[in-house]
Protein backbone atom coordinates (compact mmCIF):
# COMPACT_ATOMS: atom_id res chain seq x y z
CA UNK A 1 0.00 0.00 0.00
CA UNK A 2 2.85 2.38 0.87
CA UNK A 3 6.34 1.94 -0.46
CA UNK A 4 8.95 4.54 0.40
CA UNK A 5 12.43 4.34 -1.02
CA UNK A 6 15.62 6.41 -0.90
CA UNK A 7 13.89 9.31 0.74
CA UNK A 8 16.23 12.24 1.38
CA UNK A 9 14.99 15.37 3.10
CA UNK A 10 16.82 18.48 4.27
CA UNK A 11 16.06 21.67 6.09
CA UNK A 12 18.46 24.13 4.55
CA UNK A 13 21.88 22.55 4.76
CA UNK A 14 20.89 20.14 7.50
CA UNK A 15 20.18 16.67 6.16
CA UNK A 16 17.30 15.32 8.20
CA UNK A 17 16.44 12.07 6.40
CA UNK A 18 19.00 9.91 4.60
CA UNK A 19 17.88 7.20 2.24
CA UNK A 20 14.91 6.30 4.35
CA UNK A 21 13.04 3.29 3.01
CA UNK A 22 10.15 1.34 4.40
CA UNK A 23 6.92 -0.21 3.32
CA UNK A 24 3.53 -0.95 4.70
CA UNK A 25 0.86 -3.41 3.59
CA UNK A 26 -2.87 -2.99 3.72
CA UNK A 27 -4.28 -3.77 7.16
CA UNK A 28 -0.94 -3.48 8.94
CA UNK A 29 -0.03 -1.32 11.90
CA UNK A 30 3.57 -0.24 11.49
CA UNK A 31 5.45 1.96 13.88
CA UNK A 32 8.36 4.28 13.31
CA UNK A 33 10.16 4.66 16.59
CA UNK A 34 12.91 7.10 17.31
CA UNK A 35 14.04 9.58 19.92
CA UNK A 36 13.85 13.36 19.78
CA UNK A 37 14.81 14.86 16.44
CA UNK A 38 15.28 11.48 14.81
CA UNK A 39 13.15 12.65 11.88
CA UNK A 40 9.82 10.96 12.55
CA UNK A 41 7.69 14.04 12.00
CA UNK A 42 9.73 15.00 8.97
CA UNK A 43 9.04 11.57 7.50
CA UNK A 44 5.29 11.83 8.00
CA UNK A 45 5.16 15.43 6.83
CA UNK A 46 6.98 14.43 3.67
CA UNK A 47 4.52 11.59 3.13
CA UNK A 48 1.57 14.01 3.05
CA UNK A 49 3.36 16.66 1.04
CA UNK A 50 3.84 19.34 3.69
CA UNK A 51 7.59 18.97 3.06
CA UNK A 52 9.23 18.36 -0.28
CA UNK A 53 11.94 15.69 -0.42
CA UNK A 54 15.23 16.24 -2.23
CA UNK A 55 15.01 12.83 -3.76
CA UNK A 56 13.31 9.51 -3.34
CA UNK A 57 9.95 8.03 -4.14
CA UNK A 58 6.72 7.58 -2.22
CA UNK A 59 4.48 5.00 -3.81
CA UNK A 60 0.96 5.00 -2.44
CA UNK A 61 -1.36 2.37 -3.88
CA UNK A 62 1.15 1.85 -6.65
CA UNK A 63 1.32 5.50 -7.70
CA UNK A 64 4.26 7.82 -6.99
CA UNK A 65 2.76 10.76 -5.12
CA UNK A 66 5.89 12.88 -4.61
CA UNK A 67 4.66 15.42 -7.15
CA UNK A 68 1.05 15.48 -5.86
CA UNK A 69 -0.32 18.25 -3.69
CA UNK A 70 -1.38 17.66 -0.09
CA UNK A 71 -5.01 18.03 -1.16
CA UNK A 72 -4.67 15.25 -3.73
CA UNK A 73 -2.95 12.97 -1.25
CA UNK A 74 -5.70 13.55 1.32
CA UNK A 75 -8.28 12.80 -1.35
CA UNK A 76 -6.42 9.58 -2.12
CA UNK A 77 -6.79 8.54 1.54
CA UNK A 78 -3.37 9.47 2.94
CA UNK A 79 -4.30 11.31 6.13
CA UNK A 80 -1.98 12.74 8.78
CA UNK A 81 -3.02 13.28 12.40
CA UNK A 82 -0.26 15.76 13.19
CA UNK A 83 2.02 16.01 16.16
CA UNK A 84 0.64 18.25 18.89
CA UNK A 85 -2.99 17.58 17.79
CA UNK A 86 -3.34 20.83 15.79
CA UNK A 87 -7.06 20.99 16.32
CA UNK A 88 -8.92 24.24 15.60
CA UNK A 89 -9.24 25.70 19.10
CA UNK A 90 -12.02 28.18 18.38
CA UNK A 91 -14.21 25.71 16.52
CA UNK A 92 -16.45 23.37 18.43
CA UNK A 93 -15.75 19.67 18.61
CA UNK A 94 -18.46 19.08 16.04
CA UNK A 95 -17.09 21.73 13.65
CA UNK A 96 -13.60 20.27 14.00
CA UNK A 97 -14.92 16.89 13.00
CA UNK A 98 -16.75 18.40 10.04
CA UNK A 99 -13.51 19.98 8.85
CA UNK A 100 -12.13 16.47 8.55
CA UNK A 101 -14.73 15.81 5.86
CA UNK A 102 -13.90 19.02 4.00
CA UNK A 103 -12.31 17.38 0.98
CA UNK A 104 -14.99 14.74 0.55
CA UNK A 105 -17.50 14.86 -2.28
CA UNK A 106 -20.18 13.59 0.14
CA UNK A 107 -19.26 16.02 2.90
CA UNK A 108 -22.83 17.08 3.49
CA UNK A 109 -23.75 13.55 4.41
CA UNK A 110 -21.55 12.67 7.37
CA UNK A 111 -24.12 11.46 9.88
CA UNK A 112 -22.93 7.86 9.82
CA UNK A 113 -19.29 8.82 10.14
CA UNK A 114 -20.08 11.04 13.11
CA UNK A 115 -22.01 8.25 14.79
CA UNK A 116 -19.12 5.89 14.33
CA UNK A 117 -16.64 8.38 15.75
CA UNK A 118 -18.87 9.23 18.70
CA UNK A 119 -19.17 5.50 19.38
CA UNK A 120 -15.38 5.22 19.40
CA UNK A 121 -14.95 8.34 21.51
CA UNK A 122 -18.01 8.78 23.73
CA UNK A 123 -16.39 11.79 25.35
CA UNK A 124 -16.44 13.68 22.07
CA UNK A 125 -20.19 13.21 21.91
CA UNK A 126 -20.57 14.66 25.40
CA UNK A 127 -18.48 17.65 24.37
CA UNK A 128 -19.91 18.02 20.90
CA UNK A 129 -20.67 21.75 21.18
CA UNK A 130 -17.74 22.72 23.35
CA UNK A 131 -14.86 24.83 22.06
CA UNK A 132 -12.15 22.35 21.14
CA UNK A 133 -9.45 24.53 22.70
CA UNK A 134 -11.00 24.18 26.14
CA UNK A 135 -10.60 20.41 26.26
CA UNK A 136 -7.87 18.41 27.97
CA UNK A 137 -4.83 17.18 26.04
CA UNK A 138 -6.16 13.64 25.90
CA UNK A 139 -9.54 14.76 24.64
CA UNK A 140 -7.89 16.93 22.03
CA UNK A 141 -5.85 13.97 20.82
CA UNK A 142 -9.03 11.91 20.48
CA UNK A 143 -10.57 14.78 18.56
CA UNK A 144 -7.55 14.94 16.27
CA UNK A 145 -7.89 11.22 15.57
CA UNK A 146 -11.65 11.58 15.11
CA UNK A 147 -11.11 14.43 12.69
CA UNK A 148 -8.61 12.28 10.83
CA UNK A 149 -11.17 9.47 10.59
CA UNK A 150 -13.70 11.92 9.16
CA UNK A 151 -11.32 12.28 6.22
CA UNK A 152 -11.96 8.58 5.42
CA UNK A 153 -8.32 7.53 5.41
CA UNK A 154 -7.12 4.36 3.79
CA UNK A 155 -3.78 4.92 5.52
CA UNK A 156 -3.69 6.95 8.72
CA UNK A 157 -0.43 8.52 9.80
CA UNK A 158 -0.31 9.19 13.52
CA UNK A 159 2.43 11.50 14.75
CA UNK A 160 3.26 11.02 18.41
CA UNK A 161 -0.24 10.79 19.80
CA UNK A 162 1.10 10.14 23.31
CA UNK A 163 2.93 13.46 23.48
CA UNK A 164 2.42 15.08 26.86
CA UNK A 165 -0.27 12.69 28.02
CA UNK A 166 -0.61 10.88 31.34
CA UNK A 167 0.17 7.13 31.45
CA UNK A 168 -3.47 6.20 31.88
CA UNK A 169 -4.47 8.23 28.82
CA UNK A 170 -1.61 6.68 26.84
CA UNK A 171 -2.98 3.27 27.74
CA UNK A 172 -6.39 4.31 26.49
CA UNK A 173 -4.87 5.58 23.24
CA UNK A 174 -3.07 2.30 22.72
CA UNK A 175 -6.41 0.56 23.02
CA UNK A 176 -7.95 2.94 20.52
CA UNK A 177 -5.20 2.34 17.98
CA UNK A 178 -5.65 -1.42 18.38
CA UNK A 179 -9.40 -1.06 17.93
CA UNK A 180 -8.95 0.97 14.76
CA UNK A 181 -6.56 -1.66 13.44
CA UNK A 182 -8.99 -4.43 14.31
CA UNK A 183 -11.63 -2.59 12.25
CA UNK A 184 -9.26 -2.81 9.31
CA UNK A 185 -7.56 0.60 9.24
CA UNK A 186 -3.95 0.67 8.06
CA UNK A 187 -1.84 2.77 10.40
CA UNK A 188 1.66 4.22 10.44
CA UNK A 189 2.44 5.32 13.99
CA UNK A 190 5.44 7.56 14.73
CA UNK A 191 6.36 7.35 18.38
CA UNK A 192 8.99 8.03 20.99
CA UNK A 193 7.06 5.93 23.42
CA UNK A 194 8.30 2.56 22.24
CA UNK A 195 6.34 0.60 24.85
CA UNK A 196 3.06 1.96 23.60
CA UNK A 197 4.07 1.78 19.94
CA UNK A 198 5.43 -1.76 20.00
CA UNK A 199 2.35 -2.81 21.95
CA UNK A 200 0.11 -1.69 19.06
CA UNK A 201 2.15 -2.49 16.02
CA UNK A 202 2.69 -5.56 13.85
CA UNK A 203 6.03 -4.34 12.58
CA UNK A 204 8.44 -1.58 13.51
CA UNK A 205 11.23 0.52 12.04
CA UNK A 206 13.76 2.27 14.24
CA UNK A 207 14.80 5.69 13.05
CA UNK A 208 18.04 7.21 14.34
CA UNK A 209 19.40 10.56 13.19
CA UNK A 210 17.45 10.33 9.98
CA UNK A 211 18.39 6.73 9.13
CA UNK A 212 16.48 3.52 9.53
CA UNK A 213 18.79 1.41 11.68
CA UNK A 214 16.66 -1.60 12.52
CA UNK A 215 13.40 -3.08 11.47
CA UNK A 216 11.37 -6.15 12.11
CA UNK A 217 8.44 -7.75 13.79
CA UNK A 218 7.27 -5.61 16.73
CA UNK A 219 7.41 -8.46 19.24
CA UNK A 220 10.90 -9.54 18.18
CA UNK A 221 12.16 -5.99 18.23
CA UNK A 222 11.01 -5.36 21.75
CA UNK A 223 13.16 -8.35 22.76
CA UNK A 224 16.40 -7.09 21.21
CA UNK A 225 18.95 -5.71 23.61
CA UNK A 226 19.52 -2.56 21.59
CA UNK A 227 15.91 -1.49 21.49
CA UNK A 228 15.40 -2.46 25.11
CA UNK A 229 18.29 -0.34 26.19
CA UNK A 230 17.60 2.69 24.03
CA UNK A 231 13.86 2.95 23.95
CA UNK A 232 12.35 0.77 26.61
CA UNK A 233 14.45 2.04 29.49
CA UNK A 234 15.65 -1.42 30.42
Amino acid sequence: MLDVSNLNVSYGKQKVLRDVAFRLDKGEVVTLIGSNAAGKSTTLRTLVGLKKPESGSIKFDGRDVVASSTVDRVKAGLVLVPEGRQIFPRLTVYENLLMGAYHRADRDDTGDDLERIFALFPRLRERRDQRAGSMSGGEQQMLAIGRGLMSRPTLMLLDEPTLGLAPIVIEELGQIVRNLARDGLTILLAEQNAVMALGCADRAYVLQSGKIVTSGNAKDLSETAEVKQMYLGA
Binding site: T70, V71, P82, Q86, I87, F88, M99, Y102, R107
Partner: peptide, 23 residues
Amino acid sequence: TWLGRAAFAYAQNPEAAALMGVR
Protein backbone atom coordinates in the same frame (compact mmCIF):
# COMPACT_ATOMS: atom_id res chain seq x y z
CA THR B 1 -20.70 27.38 4.74
CA TRP B 2 -17.80 25.06 3.97
CA LEU B 3 -15.69 27.80 2.47
CA GLY B 4 -16.35 30.06 5.44
CA ARG B 5 -15.57 27.37 7.95
CA ALA B 6 -12.38 26.59 6.05
CA ALA B 7 -11.41 30.25 6.19
CA PHE B 8 -12.04 30.42 9.91
CA ALA B 9 -10.15 27.15 10.44
CA TYR B 10 -7.27 28.33 8.28
CA ALA B 11 -6.95 31.51 10.34
CA GLN B 12 -6.53 29.36 13.44
CA ASN B 13 -4.16 26.78 12.05
CA PRO B 14 -3.05 27.03 8.42
CA GLU B 15 -1.21 23.76 8.34
CA ALA B 16 -4.04 21.78 9.87
CA ALA B 17 -6.40 23.31 7.32
CA ALA B 18 -4.09 22.13 4.55
CA LEU B 19 -4.21 18.65 6.09
CA MET B 20 -8.00 18.71 5.79
CA GLY B 21 -7.60 19.16 2.04
CA VAL B 22 -8.28 22.90 1.97
CA ARG B 23 -6.73 24.52 -1.12
